[in-house]
Nucleic acid binder design. Structure first.
Length: 285
DNA sequence: GCCCAGGTATAAA
DNA sequence: TTTATACATGGG
């Protein structure tokens, strides 16, 4: 990844395979938000980041060379060729081609595994706007204060709490699930280093021993937190589309990039909800 | 009020 | 093994 050190921070040239809203506002993370000037600001990996893209340069504002290379190149997966994956997936069928073309600048972030697991436990039976609110309150109440915000709380900070303690988060029945996850991660029963390399089916099974973690949350933790691009797509919308598109097949058909395929489809469907309405019969039906 | 939201646990068929 | 329902909360 070519970059320049400037007085504003680290600059790279804008390129088609890195689009800020497509990457940071596609439902894979919940801690970034756009500002009035179009730049995105948020806290990830225990650091605040403001990042802007004027179409010529992408600027990691105030970031040092060391931090860029150590933190943000991995976080945004900048050394990986998403164009090649998009091309490969586009060959699989016409809907996948449209979905991949809809957000050509989407990348799969390498998020902190605990934050991803915990965020997607909170995500269940919820909408993205409210998920952001829950995550935000969890951080405000239990995360370390830092740089005009709060870090995502470590599992150890939550492991000793009670459901009553989590009341201000207003996450309802998910409180018990978050606590079980925090305890099991804190005491080492759930080991992310191990999950990173375990065969997919075993990794899913291990995560699903956590209360409130089913196949969907497990998939999200594996894809977004452990960068397992081969995680099975099990989102209900995607399953519905896939059952129609690919009858009598299994969702692993996208092989090592099943997770990326799922994220393209999810974003495409979420931004174009009419696609999944049977009576309007746009694409999937 | 009613419906739904990036689901899951639980019970029952 | 598959199918139905409750679950806390709040935005549309």
């Amino acid at each position: 990844m070519e970059y320049r050190v400037t007085e504003r921070g680290i600059e790279i040239e804008s390129f088609a395979e890195f689009n800020l809203p497509e990457t940071l506002d596609c439902g894979q993370c919940f801690r970034f938000s756009p500002e009035a000037d179009g730049a995105y600001s948020g806290i990830a990996m225990s650091r605040r980041l403001r990042i802007s893209d004027d179409g010529v340069h992408i600027v990691f504002e105030g970031v040092t060379e060391e931090e860029f290379l150590k933190v943000w190149v991995p976080y945004f997966d900048l050394d990986f060729d998403y164009g090649a994956v998009r091309c490969a997936l586009a060959e699989s069928d016409t809907v996948m081609r449209q979905a991949a073309a809809f957000a050509p600048g989407m990348r799969i972030l390498r998020q902190d595994p605990w934050e991803a697991l915990c965020s997607f436990i909170l995500s269940q039976n919820n909408n993205i706007k409210r998920i952001k609110g829950l995550v935000s309150r969890l951080c405000e109440h239990f995360g370390e204060p830092m740089d005009g915000g709060y870090d995502f709380p470590k599992p150890e900070a939550l492991a000793g709490l009670s459901e009553a303690d989590l009341a201000p988060v207003r996450c309802g029945f998910r409180a018990a699930y978050v606590l079980d996850a925090a305890r099991r991660v804190a005491n080492g029963e759930i080991n992310f280093e191990q999950l990173k390399f375990l065969p997919m089916e075993e990794a899913r099974k291990m995560l699903m021993t956590i209360k409130g973690v089913g196949p969907k949350v497990a998939e999200c933790a594996l894809l977004y937190g452990l960068h397992r691009l081969d995680a099975f797509p099990v989102d209900v919308w995607i399953r519905r589309a896939m059952d129609k598109l690919y009858p009598n097949t299994v969702p692993e058909q996208f092989g090592e990039y099943a997770g990326i395929a799922q994220q393209y489809l999810f974003h495409y469907c979420r931004m174009n909800p009419e696609l999944l309405k049977e009576d309007e019969c746009k694409i999937f039906f």
